[in-house]
Amino acid sequence: MSGIFLSRFRENRLAVLGAGIICALAMAAALAPLIAPFDPAAIDRRHILEAPAPSHPLGTDDLGRDLLSRMLYGARISLLVGFVSAGISTVVGSVFGAIAGYYGGWIDRAIMRFVDIMLAIPTFFLILAVIAFLEPSIWNIMAVIGLTSWTGVARFVRAEFLSLSEREFVLAARSLGASDIRIMTRHMFMNSLSPVIVSAVLGVASAVLVESGLSFLGIGVQPPTPSWGNILTAGKANIEIAWWLSVFPGLAILVTVLGYNLLGDGIRDAADPRLWRGGRGPGS
């Protein structure tokens, strides 16, 4: 399977592009202290709101700080929030979905009722409310985004488990005396792995978007820590005079989200056996 998967994935140029974007971003974030031309926090009152020029490739902000350096450090925040939030929602969603799908009955009904309730709450309102009350720190943001976005994962892991629970290999494992935990983790979860990975990758993209929105509103990552969202707040304040403060951070968010979406779709298409036989799948 992995051979077919890899060759199908490589055929999909957009997916490879997505993977490339993500690698480049991860490198930029990891190497930020080495490649950033300036200290992202260095205030320089003589060079306030300067347009992009060789000395400051992306210009400077309202405190004279170098925009490129701030964006490189901002990439660290975006990627950290994206990964941790998506990780939390994937784990929580998988556990709830697996338990609901495996045990069924009242446990399933209770969990699914809870999922319905979570789906009916305007999530962004809830995230805003919780973070506004809990002091906006990066750890709170990651926890709250993760804990409010697991319902999708829970739903399809449950559906997957429901359909797997009567399959021969599961019955075989059970008749051999395997424990519930072992059947759930070793047999059933492993067979629902590819949609879980896809949703985790897409989850990173949406967490990056939510974090930038929160930071833009001033409820996310707090200045002076640079994040793409809070740089855009300065962009809005200076929208009539400093286009670069609005254009570049937004472009960075767009490229990041695009990268994860392309990668997620690519993995989905490459892992879907229904698309193996026919011609090229959608998105190729």
Binding site: L14, L209, G213, L232, W243, S246, I253, L254, V257, L262
Partner: peptide
């Protein structure tokens, strides 16, 4: 469509403000 889907709404709003408004 992929680009439109990935663009943060508030950023599009800022760009539109900048272009049509300013």
């Amino acid at each position: 469509v992929f680009i439109g889907f990935a663009a943060p709404t508030f950023w599009l709003a800022l760009l539109l403000m900048m272009f049509f408004g300013v």
